[in-house]
C-alpha cells in the first residue's frame, strides 16, 4: 500500500485530518528552502507538495504564478528540486509530493524524472495538465510505486469521478472551485464536495484551491480527509521576514483547525 495513503489513514484513525502545504521550489530563498520546508513540517504540516516551476502555469492564479516566475529567475529547475527533496527526506518521514506541469517533465525525461523521484525519497506526483485521458501515455511503467495523484473538479461528472478515483493513488485531489489556484471569494460549493466524498471510495480525498484560513478549513473537513493550502502560504512568504513567521503561524493555525472539529 502507498506510503501517502497509509499516512493519511493513520492520521485519520487517530482523529486528525490532514494538512498538506504547497511550497514553490526554491521560493522565496533558494539557499534557505530546505530549512523552510522542515520548519513548515515542524509547524504542523502533515505533507508537503513542492511545486517545480514552469514558465506558463495554466492552472495557477497570480500568486503562484509570481512565485514560479521568481523561482525561475533564481535558476530553480528539477535537478535542484530533487536535491532539496533529498535533504528534506533525511530529516522527516512525512509524505513529499512533487507538483508541476508536464513540459518540464517531458524535457527532463519521463523515466529519469520517475527514477529521481524514487532516489530522492519523494512519494508522489501531481501533474495537473495530464488528465486521465493522457494518463497511460504519460505515466509509463517507470512510475510504478510512485503515487499519481489526480484531480476532480466541479465540472467532473459522477462517472468520471469514479474513473479518476480508480486511476489515482495516494489520494484524490478535489478542487474546490472551477478556477485557478488562488484566494477566491467564490461561493464554497459544499454540495459538490459532499457528492465526491460519496463517489471517491478507493482513495482518501483532500480538498484544495482557495483555502486560506481556519474558517475555510473547518467548513471543508467534515466532508474530506484533509485540506491542501498553497496560495495563502505563498502569499505569507512574500515579505522580508527571514524567519518566515507569518507562514509558520498560518501553518500552526491551519493545523489546529484540522484537529479541532473532529
Amino acid at each position: 500500500m502507498s506510503i501517502i495513503s497509509n499516512y493519511i489513514k493513520k492520521k485519520n484513525d487517530a482523529g486528525e485530518k490532514i494538512l498538506s502545504i504547497f511550497l514553490t521550489s526554491g521560493f522565496p530563498d533558494k539557499n534557505n528552502f530546505v530549512k523552510l520546508a522542515l520548519d513548515v513540517f515542524d509547524a504542523g504540516a502533515d505533507m508537503l507538495e513542492i511545486g517545480f516551476p514552469f514558465s506558463d502555469p495554466l492552472a495557477d492564479g497570480p500568486i503562484i504564478q509570481a512565485s514560479s516566475q521568481e523561482a525561475l529567475k533564481n535558476g530553480i529547475n528539477l535537478q535542484i528540486t530533487f536535491k532539496y527533496v533529498k535533504e528534506i527526506r533525511k530529516r522527516t518521514d512525512r509524505p513529499i509530493i512533487l507538483m508541476g506541469y508536464a513540459n518540464p517533465v517531458l524535457s527532463y525525461g519521463i523515466e529519469k524524472f520517475a527514477d529521481n523521484i524514487k532516489n530522492s525519497g519523494a512519494n508522489g506526483v501531481i501533474i495537473p495538465d495530464v488528465p486521465i485521458d493522457e494518463f497511460d501515455n504519460f505515466f509509463n511503467s517507470s512510475f510504478d510505486g510512485i503515487d499519481k495523484i489526480l484531480l476532480v473538479t466541479p465540472t467532473t461528472n459522477e462517472e468520471r469521478v469514479k474513473e479518476i478515483d480508480n486511476k489515482s493513488s495516494g489520494f484524490v485531489y478535489c478542487v474546490s472551485v472551477s478556477g485557478t489556484t488562488g484566494l477566491h471569494n467564490k461561493d464554497k460549493n459544499l454540495e459538490f464536495i459532499k457528492r465526491n466524498q460519496k463517489l471517491v471510495t478507493k482513495n482518501k480525498m483532500l480538498v484544495g484551491f482557495g483555502i486560506s484560513n481556519e474558517e475555510d478549513v473547518k467548513r471543508y473537513i467534515p466532508y474530506c480527509d484533509g485540506v491542501i493550502v498553497g496560495s495563502a502560504i505563498i502569499k505569507s512568504l512574500m515579505n522580508d521576514d527571514k524567519n518566515y513567521n507569518q507562514a509558520l503561524n498560518l501553518t500552526r493555525a491551519l493545523k489546529r483547525a484540522t484537529t479541532e472539529t473532529i
Binding site: P128, D129, P131, D133, T153, T155, T156, R160
Partner: peptide
C-alpha cells in the same frame, strides 16, 4: 491530445 486541467475536460 488534451493536456489540460481536469476542469476543461468536460467542456
Amino acid at each position: 491530445g488534451k493536456f489540460v486541467p481536469e476542469t476543461l475536460i468536460t467542456p
